Amino acid sequence: MRTLRTAAASAAALTGLLLLAPAPASAASPSASPSPSASASGSAKPVLNSVGTSFLTATTLAAGQDADVPVSTGDYLYWAFPASEGQTPTVQVTVTLPEAADRHGPQTWSVELFDGLRRRQSCTAGPQDGTAEQSAPSLGLSCTLRQIRSWAEPWSGDPLPGTYYVRLSTPDIPQTDLGLAATVHVHVATKGGADDAQPEGGTLKDPLVPPVNAGATAAGPAATPAPSASASHAAAPVAEESHWYSDLFSGWNTRWWWTVAGGVLAALAGVLGYTLTRHPRGHRHHPQRSAPVPPQAGPAPHQHPQRSDNWQ
């Protein structure tokens, strides 16, 4: 009897130890949800709280990343994001304006996109500029860029793969509102990819300029007909007529003949021009000299000039 009680107590103690032991990882509850970092889609991109004030200090944003920044009204704000071939980026901006009691009139905000060469790109959709009244709490702006291309014409400003810059500014604002505190939320979204890299409005079926092969026809090779009896007795091609001067102006010495002929013509033109513009030396006309003036005879000796009696 005592032996049975001892065995029962030992079994109860062993069962309690098994119940208190931690469960293995494989026996975890199936209802437990995985952490966001372990999800198949990956963790969300962190929200940035910085902004640049020039192209060189622009804060870089990834596709699908947001930025919440407290800013000062009137400053130029810059962000940068990469764009690859076939993508169509869209930038969305939400401005939380200062308190209505602190403002003194409507405010105009503008969002602009620039490529890596600092060229301003046009927006295809979205309100790029917006004016908020004094009582408005916020203002929304957006800009959709054209599809990024892998080529561009020299005369065009097509968007090419690379870095693009977002500039947010206040082109029209009361002077007394400069420096007021505001909050800006920026979101960069892209659609498309390398598989969608095609010309806008359609797909290029054939090359614009067909390849040129010397000696080949544009049509496919056709079956060559068998020569007939009449074709074998066709007249031979007429030989090209030649003259005594044909060999002089053909072959390697052609340029020498033209060079010599050009030099002779230039010399003749120079001589003719000199002859027409200068008088011959043997036929120059000299001015006629006037005859010398003969000496005049003086008054006769012992002869006084007659005096006039009219003087008093």
Rank of each mutant, 00 (worst) to 15 (best):
M1L: 13
S10E: 15
L17P: 01
A27N: 12
A28P: 03
S31C: 10
A32F: 08
A40H: 07
V47S: 09
S50T: 15
V71R: 02
S72C: 04
G74D: 03
Y76R: 15
A83N: 02
E85S: 11
G86I: 04
Q87K: 03
Q92D: 12
Q92L: 05
Q92R: 12
E99L: 10
A101D: 10
A101K: 11
R103S: 11
H104G: 08
S110A: 14
L113M: 09
F114T: 02
C123W: 00
C123N: 02
G126D: 04
P127I: 00
P127S: 11
G130W: 00
A132G: 08
E133R: 15
Q134S: 14
A136V: 01
S138E: 07
L139D: 05
L139C: 03
L139M: 14
T144P: 00
R149H: 05
S150P: 02
G162I: 01
Y164H: 07
L168E: 12
L168T: 04
S169V: 05
T170C: 01
L178N: 10
A181R: 01
V186W: 00
H187V: 06
H187D: 08
V188S: 04
G192M: 02
D195T: 14
A197P: 04
T203S: 13
V209F: 05
A218C: 06
T224D: 02
P227G: 10
P237R: 01
H243M: 06
Y245T: 07
S246L: 08
F249A: 02
S250E: 08
G251V: 05
W252K: 04
T254H: 06
W256S: 02
W257K: 05
A261Q: 13
V264Y: 12
L268R: 08
A269T: 15
T277Q: 11
H286K: 09
Q288H: 13
P292H: 09
P295E: 15
P295H: 13
G298E: 14
P301N: 06
Q303P: 03
S308Q: 06
